[in-house]
């Protein structure tokens, strides 16, 4: 199950609809729906911005189940090499006045997903977000 969308903010809604409908069909618990929606949004926003800094381009999103319990979202694009996991996380131990208010999206992706991996494959960025249906 795949969908290809223009790499721009206007695609967020359709991407979310596509992924959540599959998550629902796989009976993922309601509590994980927000995790998935937010993880997906933050990942796509970063890709739109950094893999396609000039605009244009497309992203391909697919959903599948692995080992019967892993809901896997794969996002691939043909933009410039960009690993979302390389973006620095904010230092939350600092007092608010010294904190950079940025990098929050990447922090959310890491914390809300059960696993996040990146690979560069055939000149494409491939980001894989995994949500485990029943935590082991």
């Amino acid at each position: 199950m795949k969908i290809t969308l223009p790499a721009r903010m206007e695609s967020l809604q359709e991407a979310t609809r596509f992924v959540l409908s599959h998550a629902r069909a796989e009976n993922l618990p309601g509590g994980r729906m927000t995790d998935i929606e937010l993880g997906l949004e933050e990942a796509l926003v970063n890709i739109f911005q950094y893999a396609y800094p000039e605009g244009g381009g497309e992203v391909e999103i697919s959903c599948r189940i692995d080992e019967g319990r892993k809901f896997i979202i794969e996002i691939s694009d043909a933009g410039i090499p960009f690993d979302v996991l390389s973006v620095a996380e904010p230092d939350l131990s600092l007092a608010l006045e010294d904190r950079q208010i940025g990098g929050l999206g990447v922090l959310l992706i890491r914390k809300l997903m059960d696993d996040v991996t990146y690979r560069r494959e055939r000149n494409r960025n491939v980001l894989t977000l995994t949500v485990i249906k029943t935590p082991s």
């Binding site: 927000t34 929606e37 937010l38 949004e41 933050e42 926003v45 608010l96 904190r99 208010i101 940025g102 929050l104 999206g105 959310l108």
Partner: peptide, 14 residues
């Protein structure tokens, strides 16, 4: 629902 952009608004106000 709140995403990172929403959190930024909150943190800036704070």
């Amino acid at each position: 629902y709140i995403s990172s952009m929403g959190l930024r608004v909150f943190l800036k106000a704070r």
